[in-house]
């Protein structure tokens, strides 16, 4: 096993009856990189991410996440990953601090560690004055940042994000990506699915999924060269229009 890889898959497949949602995908994600996972709706992104997070058992193939096998050590994987969904997963009827406290405890931090990590998080986000504010009263952009910070509060090796910027304005999205860079800078591997092509440009490498298969995988720069286009948008369009299902 390569110690430099955070995620490694080999022929990973998921079938639901006759339907092959994810069709033998193989790729590696290098430790500390920002790995973009692109695809139209229904291309199999979410199913793939669910298998990697231990939420769904693969039908075939191999995969290790943070060095642990997805079949045998799902529990170990859960300890070493963070997860942020499109919906942010914060509780609207809990305060900022209560949300931090709850998730930190769920991720297995003890009281002292929660206090420490929580304080650091609040200072970094500048949310110290808002600790007793209900999350429902926070602006969307703040919620998103808070959700991301909470997803990595236990300093996981990898953080998975399933379309984390859906429904957010471009400015907020940019600020959010700055946070992702910060996390990546301290060595956290970032695995992010998106269908915003400008975001794809921010990634170190991207995989483009079409009909359950990975059709292309490289850095945005190389992909653009390969497909003779000047934007990721165009690259994606060239690949995605081949899709049979959508």
């Amino acid at each position: 096993m390569n110690g430099q890889n955070s995620i490694m898959t080999e022929g990973l497949t998921k079938r639901f009856g006759d339907f092959t949602a994810v069709d033998a995908i193989s790729f590696q994600v290098i430790k500390g990189e920002i790995f973009g996972f692109l695809g139209a709706n229904g291309a199999g992104k979410t199913t793939a991410i669910r298998m990697l997070c231990g939420l769904s058992i693969p039908t075939e193939g191999h995969a290790t996440v943070a060095g642990f096998d997805v079949y045998k050590s799902a529990e170990q994987i859960k300890r070493n990953i963070g997860y942020m969904s499109q919906k942010f997963s914060l509780y609207d009827d809990l305060t900022v601090w209560e949300n931090i406290q709850f998730y930190a405890a769920i991720y297995g931090l003890d009281k002292k560690a929660i206090k420490l990590a929580g304080d650091k998080l609040l200072d970094r986000l500048g949310l110290r004055n808002e600790i007793n504010t209900m999350v429902s009263e926070l602006p969307l952009g703040w919620k998103q940042k808070l959700a991301f910070s909470i997803a990595i509060i236990h300093q996981p090796e990898i953080v998975f994000m399933d379309e984390p910027t859906g429904g957010v304005d471009p400015l907020t999205r940019r600020q959010f990506w700055l946070m992702i860079y910060e996390a990546s800078a301290v060595g956290i591997t970032v695995f992010v699915t998106t269908h915003y092509m400008d975001e794809a440009e921010y990634c170190d490498r991207v995989a483009i999924m079409v009909d359950g298969k990975i059709e292309a995988l490289d850095s945005p720069k190389n992909l653009k060269q390969q497909f003779h286009s000047d934007s990721m948008d165009d690259v994606f369009y060239q690949l995605a229009r081949k899709a049979v299902r959508s």
Partner: peptide, 13 residues
Amino acid sequence: EMGNMETLLVSPM
């Protein structure tokens, strides 16, 4: 519905 379930399932809980 709020999407918290996924996060909880991914957590070591």
